[in-house]
Design a protein around this nucleic acid. Structure first.
Length: 268
DNA sequence: CTGGGGACGGGGCCC
DNA sequence: TGGGCCCCGTCCCCA
């Protein structure tokens, strides 16, 4: 899989995703850098239509997503197949979605209530207890309200991405994730698109040659702080990643993985 | 084959 | 709540 599997290199108005809102603020870094370069088309995708992300009814209040990524975009741009696999949940079934696989707590409580109604003494002897926070309520409705407003709403992931299967506990986290689909930050030099401004900033350094991160031990400089960090490992006698079997250390986890796959740990 | 560099992605934290 | 930043991690390429 290409490492830049979410990067769109070319944009075509006829192929732009059907997004909205989030990309109203396409990021432009250092415009003077681009004066001598052609200006690529900045996509204005549409995402996050209003009301689509109610914490309670994420999918059910939104129109089904019938026009996902445009034809050909997936294979051309290297989108993972999951991005094109739009699978909205069954319509008008909020409770089943929210509890994904397990039975609904409300139905559970209803069953309990039914059994208790057949035995009034049981109601007095037992209170309705929240299975998440152990709070007890004297009535089923009290427990149901508590769970709807507090425990269930907080414990479940309520914000679903309409481009993939991921779910998030907050709208902010979902918006952040959706940017990985919409890629609003476009390099005006080469047209590459990124999910976040600082990713674009780092990418632009590949054009400008700027390397602001210097190694204190040698004269090397890096455009990426992570790469400097990895480089610093090469100056260390004992490196960060150690093989559990031969105790050899490596500067990068990928090197440790390679080492393990190459046979050191075959016996294990 | 190994080690290292380059480029980049995503989650989390802080302001 | 959103943006910036950090950290961790991955993948590819090359010497």
């Amino acid at each position: 899989m290409p490492r830049s599997f979410l990067v769109k290199k070319h944009f075509n108005a006829s192929k732009k995703p059907n997004y909205s809102e989030l990309d109203t603020h396409t990021v432009i870094i250092s415009p003077y850098l681009y004066e001598s370069y052609p200006m690529p088309v900045i996509p204005q995708p549409e995402i996050l239509s209003s009301g689509a992300y109610s914490p309670i009814t994420v999918w059910t209040t939104a129109a089904p997503f019938h026009s996902p990524l445009p034809n050909g975009l997936s294979s051309l741009s290297g989108y993972p197949s999951s991005l094109g696999r739009v699978s909205p949940p069954p319509p008008s079934d909020t409770s089943s979605k929210d509890h994904s696989g397990s039975e609904s707590p409300i139905s559970d409580e209803e069953e309990r209530l039914q059994s208790k109604l057949s035995d009034p003494h049981a109601i007095e002897a037992e209170k309705f207890q929240c299975n998440l926070c152990n709070k007890t309520y004297s009535t089923f409705s009290g427990l149901a309200k508590h769970k709807q407003l507090h425990c269930d709403a907080q414990s479940r992931k309520s914000f679903s991405c309409k481009y993939c299967d991921k779910e998030y506990v907050s709208l902010g986290a979902l918006k952040m994730h959706i940017r990985t689909h919409t890629l609003p930050c476009v390099c005006k030099i080469c047209g590459k698109a990124f999910s976040r401004p600082w990713l674009l900033q780092g990418h632009i350094r590949t054009h400008t040659g700027e390397k602001p991160f210097s190694c204190p031990h040698c004269n090397r400089a890096f455009a990426d702080r992570s790469n400097l960090r990895a480089h610093l490992q090469t100056h260390s006698d004992v490196k960060k990643y150690q093989c559990k079997n031969c105790s050899k250390t490596f500067s990068r986890m990928s090197l440790l993985h390679k080492h393990e796959e190459s046979g050191c740990c075959v016996a294990h």
